[in-house]
Amino acid sequence: MSELTLTVMRLGFLAVLWLFVIVAVQVIRSDLFGTRVTQRGSRRGGSERQTQRAQQQTAPPPQRQQQGGGRRADRSRRGAPTKLVVSEGSLTGTTVALQGQTISLGRAHDSTIVLDDDYASSRHARIYPDRDGQWIVEDLGSTNGTYLDRTRLTTPTPIPLGAPIRIGKTVIELRK
């Protein structure tokens, strides 16, 4: 056997062995199932992000007002939020698609959004749609309370688009 063949086989074997190890580590990585997290959107600087958030809160996007039209149901659907965004706290940047399901928030492991926040209760609040499709936030008797803007919630309250809901150190809002 030529020296070259043996050298190629020697290095080839090591490469295959390590490929196996790497594939195994990838399997471990993909094995962390339970929730699927999809990265989306471009990476931008923090400051730009701040300004965007400010913009969004002050000026609701007007351009969508023109198209479409008369029927009430249509309008309510158009104005309806499509996702819930965590804008402050350890989960910043997380979004959950709103699809008519109840979203529970808290430190309990079976919550839709598991808050890693010392000031949140285990079952802190929930967000659900009422019959008209309007999203409602309700405090579930939490220790530190749930705040919509500055007011502490006492009853289930409809959520305006973009209004910050504060739970402990976490702030979430509904977006289109």
């Binding site: 094995d31 929730t35 699927r36 959107g41 471009s42 990476r43 969508r64 977006r175």
Partner: peptide, 28 residues
């Protein structure tokens, strides 16, 4: 819902993530 045309006009968020639940696969 998923066909909402407003998605592209949304201001992009850095590290935007979406969470959805998946069942445990058997991995055989």
């Amino acid at each position: 819902m998923s066909a909402m045309p407003s998605m592209p006009s949304m201001p992009g968020f850095a590290n935007t993530t979406t969470i959805s639940t998946v069942g445990p696969p058997s991995r055989r």
